[in-house]
Design a binder for these strands. Structure first.
Lengths: 216, 216
DNA sequence: GCGGATATTACCAAATATGGTAATTGACAT
DNA sequence: ATGTCAATTACCATATTTGGTAATATCCGC
């Protein structure tokens, strides 16, 4: 890391590009390897500069910053992306996150905070303005894991159910577990009882929906 | 805010409670209103102390910290909760977020960071250790984008498959759609072909996992 | 109008799943 | 030591599903 973290910037605002440029040049921990007013040639730009971190404005003429993020993530999965924006518009925040941005900070942040955000992104963190972080968490809460009920399935029963979800028949399950067909049946009967279902399909549907299993 | 942010702590580790106590007492921006070794009486404790922020250990004897969070969120929706933990175990992080925690930081964080996290939580932010933040974002990404494949199922086939996922048998489906048992079978055969499966369970699992249907 | 996809029905034979009942063994807790 | 629970196996009778093959009717596009 003799030259610090290699950074490139995409932002149509020239004065902001300049101030970031100066900020980075004053600090030996960072190297500015490129600065662009639009993201039409992202792929090319990145291939040439080989940056560690990309700072991307979310609103830009031509290609949208979000699109650019998607492109970068697809072609250069190791490059970390820090979104920079004026607004903390919900839609855009989520779109950026979804596209694969690792951090999301507002343009009115302190210079010091920007520098810290860059190193944080580089080091596997996900810097976010407090308000943005809260929004993400809230969204997270509403979408995420329904608290999975406990059906008190025994270990063995879980094994059997898991195989069933994978599409195996009783006979195949018996073979895989080295037990008798009838034993599998006995387990299935218990499972049906505990899950309040009465057929393989219901059991599978419930198991997947209640996220008792992967979902592959 | 003459007495600063009112904080109470739940943690079974006495020495950690003490160090946080001292930390807060040394700073005029905070007031420690309570300190408890377990969360069995959370509701009562909160009613008495009326805190702004609750610091909650995730692992505690008796009531689980997560459960306590759920309880607090339910009865005191304005109280902000900051989780404190030793491990950044995925399961627990997500469970805590889902339960309604506003922030999640590790116990090995700098004292200064803890103080900042408390004010951040109080001011509507969502402080998270970098690694935790990244995990949340990644989970976020994986949940939103789902490009679902198109298996070219006909309308009728989709209807049949939907009923199958709901747990109906061929006979029941036939009844519901006012068609013959054999017709249902014909559709199923086509569905199996198109989905590349060979049994009800596989079809159901695939249908749900590929999000061809709700998931109840 | 003809080929193609969709929806419908039908029958046979074989494979699987379901419900009920019952018994044995080992582990673990009171 | 007694009882509960998990895991195991067994058998019977039914119900359901699956694979193969085939036929008819309708609608659509070229």
């Amino acid at each position: 890391m003799m030259n610090g973290i290699k950074v490139i910037i995409f932002d149509d605002n020239a004065s902001l590009r300049d101030s970031i440029t100066m900020l980075l040049q004053d600090n030996p921990d960072f190297t500015l390897a490129g600065s662009y007013a639009h993201s039409l040639d992202v792929t090319e730009n990145i291939m040439q500069t080989q940056p560690d971190v990309v700072i991307m404005d979310i609103d830009m003429p031509g290609m949208n910053g979000i699109e650019a993020v998607r492109l970068i993530r697809k072609n250069f999965p190791t490059v970390q992306i820090l979104m920079l924006t004026v607004f903390d518009d919900d839609e855009k925040v989520f779109a950026a996150v979804k596209a694969g941005a690792a951090g999301y900070i507002l343009k009115n942040a302190e210079p010091q905070n920007l520098l810290q955000a860059i190193s944080e992104v580089y080091n596997g963190g996900a810097p976010m303005t407090p308000g943005v972080a809260r929004k993400v968490l809230q969204q997270f809460q509403s979408i995420l894991p329904e608290e999975k009920k406990d059906y008190h399935l025994s270990m063995r029963e879980k094994e059997v159910l898991a195989l069933l979800v994978d599409g195996l028949s009783y006979k195949m399950i018996a073979g895989k577990l080295n037990i008798t067909y009838d034993t599998v049946r006995a387990h299935m009967k218990k499972i049906y009882e505990k899950l309040h279902v009465a057929s393989m399909t219901e059991a599978v549907a419930k198991a997947i929906n209640q996220k008792l299993f992967s979902g592959k």
